[in-house]
Protein backbone atom coordinates (compact mmCIF):
# COMPACT_ATOMS: atom_id res chain seq x y z
CA UNK A 1 0.00 0.00 0.00
CA UNK A 2 1.43 3.41 -1.02
CA UNK A 3 1.37 5.80 1.95
CA UNK A 4 -0.66 8.96 1.44
CA UNK A 5 2.34 11.25 1.84
CA UNK A 6 3.92 9.84 -1.33
CA UNK A 7 0.98 11.25 -3.26
CA UNK A 8 1.43 14.56 -1.45
CA UNK A 9 5.14 14.56 -2.33
CA UNK A 10 4.37 13.90 -6.00
CA UNK A 11 1.80 16.71 -5.98
CA UNK A 12 4.26 19.09 -4.30
CA UNK A 13 6.92 18.29 -6.90
CA UNK A 14 4.50 18.80 -9.81
CA UNK A 15 3.30 22.07 -8.22
CA UNK A 16 6.88 23.34 -7.92
CA UNK A 17 7.66 22.42 -11.54
CA UNK A 18 4.55 24.37 -12.57
CA UNK A 19 5.56 27.38 -10.46
CA UNK A 20 9.04 27.37 -12.02
CA UNK A 21 7.43 27.25 -15.47
CA UNK A 22 5.09 30.17 -14.72
CA UNK A 23 7.86 32.31 -13.25
CA UNK A 24 10.69 31.69 -15.73
CA UNK A 25 9.23 31.09 -19.21
CA UNK A 26 8.57 33.95 -21.63
CA UNK A 27 6.09 32.21 -23.93
CA UNK A 28 2.51 32.77 -22.68
CA UNK A 29 1.30 29.44 -24.09
CA UNK A 30 3.83 27.55 -21.97
CA UNK A 31 2.89 29.68 -18.95
CA UNK A 32 -0.73 28.51 -19.43
CA UNK A 33 0.46 24.90 -19.67
CA UNK A 34 2.36 25.33 -16.39
CA UNK A 35 -0.86 26.63 -14.81
CA UNK A 36 -2.57 23.39 -15.89
CA UNK A 37 0.27 21.48 -14.19
CA UNK A 38 -0.34 23.42 -10.96
CA UNK A 39 -4.09 22.72 -11.03
CA UNK A 40 -3.39 19.03 -11.68
CA UNK A 41 -1.07 18.85 -8.67
CA UNK A 42 -3.90 20.20 -6.50
CA UNK A 43 -6.25 17.60 -7.99
CA UNK A 44 -3.85 14.79 -7.03
CA UNK A 45 -3.89 16.07 -3.45
CA UNK A 46 -7.68 16.22 -3.35
CA UNK A 47 -8.16 12.73 -4.80
CA UNK A 48 -5.48 11.27 -2.52
CA UNK A 49 -7.19 12.72 0.56
CA UNK A 50 -10.57 11.56 -0.71
CA UNK A 51 -9.12 8.04 -0.86
CA UNK A 52 -7.46 8.53 2.52
CA UNK A 53 -10.64 9.51 4.33
CA UNK A 54 -12.99 7.40 2.22
CA UNK A 55 -15.08 10.44 1.33
CA UNK A 56 -16.32 11.56 -2.07
CA UNK A 57 -16.12 15.32 -1.35
CA UNK A 58 -12.57 15.57 -2.68
CA UNK A 59 -13.76 14.29 -6.04
CA UNK A 60 -16.42 17.02 -6.17
CA UNK A 61 -13.82 19.70 -5.48
CA UNK A 62 -11.58 18.21 -8.20
CA UNK A 63 -14.50 18.36 -10.67
CA UNK A 64 -14.97 22.06 -9.89
CA UNK A 65 -11.24 22.67 -10.30
CA UNK A 66 -11.34 21.02 -13.73
CA UNK A 67 -14.35 23.22 -14.62
CA UNK A 68 -12.49 26.36 -13.61
CA UNK A 69 -9.38 25.17 -15.48
CA UNK A 70 -11.42 24.71 -18.66
CA UNK A 71 -12.95 28.18 -18.31
CA UNK A 72 -9.54 29.70 -17.58
CA UNK A 73 -7.91 28.02 -20.58
CA UNK A 74 -10.68 29.16 -22.94
CA UNK A 75 -10.64 32.81 -21.79
CA UNK A 76 -6.85 32.91 -21.49
CA UNK A 77 -6.27 31.55 -24.98
CA UNK A 78 -8.91 33.96 -26.34
CA UNK A 79 -7.01 36.86 -24.75
CA UNK A 80 -3.79 35.43 -26.17
CA UNK A 81 -5.21 35.39 -29.72
CA UNK A 82 -6.45 38.99 -29.34
CA UNK A 83 -3.05 40.02 -27.98
CA UNK A 84 -1.15 38.29 -30.78
CA UNK A 85 -3.36 40.04 -33.35
CA UNK A 86 -2.49 43.45 -31.88
CA UNK A 87 1.18 43.08 -30.97
CA UNK A 88 2.51 40.16 -33.06
CA UNK A 89 4.24 38.50 -30.11
CA UNK A 90 3.55 35.82 -27.49
CA UNK A 91 6.20 36.90 -25.00
CA UNK A 92 4.90 37.71 -21.53
CA UNK A 93 7.64 40.26 -20.80
CA UNK A 94 6.57 42.38 -23.77
CA UNK A 95 3.18 42.98 -22.13
CA UNK A 96 4.55 45.93 -20.18
CA UNK A 97 2.10 48.77 -20.82
CA UNK A 98 1.25 49.03 -17.11
CA UNK A 99 4.86 48.62 -15.98
CA UNK A 100 6.24 51.52 -14.01
Amino acid sequence: MVPTWHYLALAAALFTVGVIGVLTRRNIIIIFMSLELILNAVNINLIAFARHWGSVDGHIFAIFIITVAAAEAAVGLGILIAFFRNRDTVNADEIDLLKW
Binding site: N27, I29, L77, F84, V90
Partner: peptide
Amino acid sequence: FLFVIMLVNLDVAVRQAPYN
Protein backbone atom coordinates in the same frame (compact mmCIF):
# COMPACT_ATOMS: atom_id res chain seq x y z
CA PHE B 1 -3.98 24.57 -26.83
CA LEU B 2 -2.82 22.89 -30.04
CA PHE B 3 -5.32 24.92 -32.08
CA VAL B 4 -4.05 28.16 -30.58
CA ILE B 5 -0.41 27.12 -31.12
CA MET B 6 -1.24 26.62 -34.79
CA LEU B 7 -3.18 29.91 -35.04
CA VAL B 8 -0.30 31.86 -33.52
CA ASN B 9 2.86 32.18 -35.57
CA LEU B 10 5.56 30.81 -33.29
CA ASP B 11 8.59 30.71 -35.59
CA VAL B 12 9.92 33.94 -34.10
CA ALA B 13 9.25 32.90 -30.50
CA VAL B 14 11.04 29.55 -30.90
CA ARG B 15 14.24 31.33 -31.92
CA GLN B 16 14.15 33.83 -29.03
CA ALA B 17 15.50 33.24 -25.53
CA PRO B 18 13.03 30.87 -23.81
CA TYR B 19 13.58 32.19 -20.25
CA ASN B 20 13.10 35.71 -18.92
